[in-house]
Design a protein around this nucleic acid. Structure first.
Lengths: 214, 214, 214, 214
DNA sequence: GATGAATGAGGCTTCATTCAT
DNA sequence: CATGAATGAAGCCTCATTCAT
């Protein structure tokens, strides 16, 4: 053959396998930025540096691309958080704070929060995807929090309350913050500091949850 | 102020009374149900029982209709709530609970919650509308809560905390509940009871807020 | 009102009702000329003097337009032919010749022959339409011929043969002529004269059919 | 001659042997099954077990492939039939029947009949190919029949008639049967038996053609 | 030769918007 | 005021064709 195979082939192979990822990344950006309907596949392809047709080599259609974007970005994140809870040895007060803060760092402060908002916005138009997201992500996240609450009550560190209800109370502000970040955040001239907000929230909350108040 | 409220408000209100309520109601329904992009003006007109052309007698274009829908449903609700706070004579603990519950009754349990979710979903595509909504509705709601908190602290019924922060803590779950209702609620086989949820939330919260814990 | 209603309205009304017919005529022309796939809806609309979008006011999609073209042009033609047979009083030899010749005049020599060829060409891609065409047009045409044969045998004017088989023998050349006209006819420098051909065909045929050959 | 046979023939035959039969066979299958436009080159390549790019090593483009398919299947069949006629020694009545039956066996009952139908369907979109097909296949077939008729008249076995006209009469049903097989045949619940049909046709016909009717 | 990823022109279809009645 | 037929820009998607490997 008449060309430096290794170098070029290497580049090529890498690109070929990377193509779907590049497309998914571009799609995530634009879906989050503009919403499903306002995102043109032309633009997705353009941002990924390929032509419109290439997109269809990897995804059946726009809806399929959307679903792939959702799937692609949710699976890996949850595993490590679940581990953290099971191995935690400190006081449940600190565990709860840790969970919330880590959650924000790993999800809220990432583009993944855009996914959350996207799913909320489009859930009505993609019921099955919404169901999947709900079951695989939201419920699994809730279960994590609930496990931490149960642990705290078992160890006598937290008051005995309805864990399901309290889970919602804990989860809601984090979700809200994620949605907020991608909706009204830019309308505020003095934007919320997520960290400060979450700390304030936990401070208030823990007073109501802790068992040993003297 | 960094949002052209006056101009927008002026422009919007000029023809407000000329706009048939049927069109706005139909538009609200469909926008909430399907989102902005997926709502066809044909369907709006159809649901309102008029022809598509008629719609254009009252609204310049789709965007204008959208803005009118937002505008139409903002104004009346807040006034009475503000009055309630100023005239309230009981303990601030009860006032806060009252505010949250009334808010849910008058907004969350209404189609207005759909508006909230709609604005969140579309805020990126309609920055000025989002700004307007943020300033006129959300900030005004926040201000109400903040006033109640200040009152409670002044009367020695609540601990002295950063009122702005605590306001967010109180507001977030209510907003979340509204968004939830129009997104993932239908994915749950055992749906949340908003009332129960809000009560649990306030119960926990008040423990952290009340001054007189002995 | 400030314009001569009657004249204009008259023209308009006429146009409005005529619109689908104009579109169907244009579509027939182009489908016959180019085939289904090669016919662009843009061109159909253009030939009908309207824009592309207008087409979709009357037909759901390209396939629907195609089906409508088929349906539109087949119903009316058969009725009168059937009447003719039932009322005929002369010799069956002349009736058969009459049927074939009239068939050619009313169908073969019309654009309807193009429809026949079109259906043959596209039958594989539109099985239900083909079935419909087969049942409603071809079978009905065959039945007509068969009735004439039965009549002739009953009256002792024709030899007693398998009417179904003979029907095919009679029908095939007429169909072939129609197909030919829209396929290879333009390849011949000395084109067939349909009339002469059909006469030759009947002449030969009748010798084999007539009972009284002495 | 009004058709550039030589040039086309020359061009086509040049690479004929280089063209893999698998591709041509696959193309024939699919063109016949779906028509020209609805046949995707991807599928042709796939059915032939090669990649899409390979197709372009052998054929300039889709049209060229189409022409090659036509060309590929024309040549061999006619030669032997022509020989048969020239060497035939029996009664012309039997020769005619032989010709028709052999024709059906070797062409009609083969996939070649699909080619016939294909050419009819696409003739408008490929005038030169149609011309070529007409001149090389159809006219040559007609010439065969005409020669047999002339022979029969010369030998006093057939009535003296316009051979050109009668040729058409004989040829039409066979062609029709081929077209029918690939169009409406699948619409009939009681399909025609080609053999029975052709026999009935010849029986009736010969009565009109034979000289010695007493 | 063979591959198959990439291209992009072109067609179908939708729907916000206009305007003659 | 009201209508609804008409428009045409714009987006999704297909598939013949190319070309680097």
């Amino acid at each position: 053959m008449n060309c430096p195979i290794n170098k070029i082939k290497g580049r090529w192979e890498r690109r070929k396998n990377a193509r779907p990822q590049e497309l998914l990344a571009a799609a995530l950006d634009l879906f989050v930025e503009r919403g499903y309907a306002a995102t043109r596949l032309d633009d997705v392809a353009g941002r990924a540096g390929v032509s419109k047709g290439t997109l269809y080599l990897y995804f059946t259609n726009k809806e399929d691309l959307f679903k792939a974007v959702i799937q692609e970005h949710l699976v890996p994140t949850l595993g490590e958080a679940e581990q953290m809870i099971d191995q935690y040895e400190g006081h449940s007060r600190d565990l709860l704070r840790e969970i919330v803060m880590l959650w924000w760092q790993r999800v809220g402060d990432t583009q993944l929060s855009g996914l959350m908002k996207l799913m909320m916005a489009e859930s009505g138009n993609f019921p099955e995807v919404a169901q999947f997201y709900h079951d695989e992500i939201i419920m699994r996240g809730n279960a994590m929090v609930e496990r931490a609450l149960t642990r705290g009550m078992a160890r006598g560190e937290l008051r005995k309350l309805d864990t399901a209800q309290v889970t919602q109370v804990i989860v809601a502000p984090v979700l809200m913050l994620m949605v907020w970040k991608h909706s009204f955040a830019s309308c505020q001239n003095k934007p919320i500091s997520p960290i400060a907000y979450l700390n304030a929230f936990i401070d208030v909350l823990l007073v109501g949850l802790l068992a040993d108040r003297a």
